[in-house]
Computed example of a mutant assay.
Amino acid sequence: MNDQENCPLEDENIPLNQVEVKQLKRKKGNQYCFWFRNDEPLITIGPHWPFPLFLIVILILGTYYIGFIFYKTEILFRIVQSCSGLFLILSFIFTSLKNQGINYIQSNTIFLENWCSICQMNKVKGTIHCKDCNICIRGYDHHCIWIGKCVGEGNQFAFNVFILAFLVFFVINYVLLLI
């Protein structure tokens, strides 16, 4: 054996060819993928899709109850509460539908530690295989059952905005209750 066989290839990442992408397009692991740009999905629905659906219904009914039944007199309270509720609902929908960073890019590295035997592809640096979603996620943070899928590099910012919107919604409604 010579030294070239043992060392990794240090080439840049190579995207999948068109045939491989078409095979992976609709369903990848336990994810359903929709609307593609540059052969990566923009919208994905995770394996735990009933939880986000349930939470959307609860958020809509909850904001309606708080804004239009609980605050019966003050129109200003209704407007402020409705705007914060709308921001919360829209940020949640955006987070739960956004692609979390599904790995569609193969690496040229020949090390076995970068190979995912389940996905049958090399993983780029920072990619981890999620057992719930059954796919490799770039920049994997955690699997969140409430958004129905993983939080990764693709939806990390949207997830943080949703958490902020959740905090703002409850602080606003708490302050409005004290007034």
Rank of each mutant, 00 (worst) to 15 (best):
W146A: 12
C133Q: 02
F169A: 10
L55M: 15
T127I: 07
I14C: 06
I14M: 08
N108K: 14
N13D: 09
L86G: 14
N108S: 15
I110F: 06
I147T: 12
Y104K: 05
G154F: 04
N38I: 04
C119M: 10
I60R: 03
Y32G: 03
K72P: 01
Q31H: 12
I79K: 10
N17K: 02
V21Q: 03
I66W: 00
T127C: 15
N17R: 04
N2R: 01
K149F: 06
I137Q: 01
N2G: 12
L167W: 06
L86F: 10
Q156W: 09
C116A: 10
M1L: 07
I118M: 13
C83N: 12
I58V: 10
I66Q: 01
C116E: 05
S91E: 02
V21H: 02
Y64F: 13
K28N: 15
I60K: 03
N17S: 13
T73S: 09
G62C: 09
Q81A: 06
G139V: 14
Q106N: 15
G154V: 13
N134A: 15
F170I: 04
G67R: 00
R26V: 12
P47Q: 13
I172G: 02
I147A: 05
I56N: 02
V161Y: 01
Y32Q: 06
K22F: 13
R37W: 09
I69E: 11
D39A: 07
C136D: 14
P41R: 08
T73L: 05
G101W: 01
C130V: 07
